[in-house]
Amino acid sequence: MADPYFFGYGSLVNLSTHDFPDPRPARLKGWRRAWRHTDLRPVAFLTAVPDAGSEIEGMIAHVPKNDWAALDEREWAYDRVPATQSISHPLKHEVEIAVYAVPHDKHNAPSNHHPLLLSYIDVVVQGYLRAFGEKGADRFFETTDGWDAPILNDRAEPRYPRHQQLKPTETEFVDDRLNRIAARIVQTA
């Protein structure tokens, strides 16, 4: 029987945000990330979207207690999509890997009413910096759509529930990359 793992491509790359067992760097072929919103949440969040010409880095981790139902409940806004054959990883034993993605017909572009949270971006980029270095964090920006959306600066009072304290160099990196892509930072939503 294959060991169950899932592929994380956003905040789950930041190992400070969870305690899922056996996290390992991995790559998912045929997908990109996109900032999207649904009617289920007041702010935009990351989802994976099919893209035959793209590949994204992330982390795989073991499904706790082999309990897909509990993980499905945690990721309730997403569908679990089988992805074993699309993921390259360092594991040598047989695994079953899924990726969580919002169904295409259930998400929309971010807006002023559904902005990106800077505290969420900080967490994700911090994870990529620590797992994949600056080049990996740059690849995160390059393989993620939706950067034209408004970004709510909530650093002083983070709204993202798993926010993390960034080192000054990490904050500088995030701010520099957002400046490079001409991101629109707003103070209120």
Rank of each mutant, 00 (worst) to 15 (best):
G10P: 01
R130M: 08
S54T: 10
N108P: 03
R80I: 08
R27V: 07
A34R: 14
D39N: 13
D105C: 04
A34L: 07
A70Y: 05
Y128L: 01
P50A: 10
L12I: 12
G127A: 02
Q126F: 00
F7W: 09
K106G: 05
T38W: 08
R139C: 01
E96P: 11
E134G: 07
Q85C: 08
F7Y: 09
R36L: 11
N14I: 00
F20S: 07
E75P: 10
Y100T: 06
R74E: 10
H89R: 14
G127K: 00
A69P: 05
Y9V: 04
A83M: 10
V123E: 02
G58Q: 05
H114T: 10
Q85K: 12
D19N: 13
K29R: 10
F20L: 14
V125K: 00
F7M: 14
P25H: 05
I97G: 02
G8T: 07
Y120G: 03
H93D: 15
F45P: 01
A61C: 03
K106H: 10
A70R: 15
L46E: 03
Y9G: 05
L28E: 12
I56W: 02
D138Q: 09
P23Y: 01
P25Y: 00
D19A: 15
I87N: 05
S88R: 11
F20K: 09
G133N: 09
L46D: 03
R80F: 00
V95E: 07
R139M: 01
P103H: 06
P23E: 12
S119M: 02
Y5W: 14
A137H: 01
S16F: 06
A44S: 13
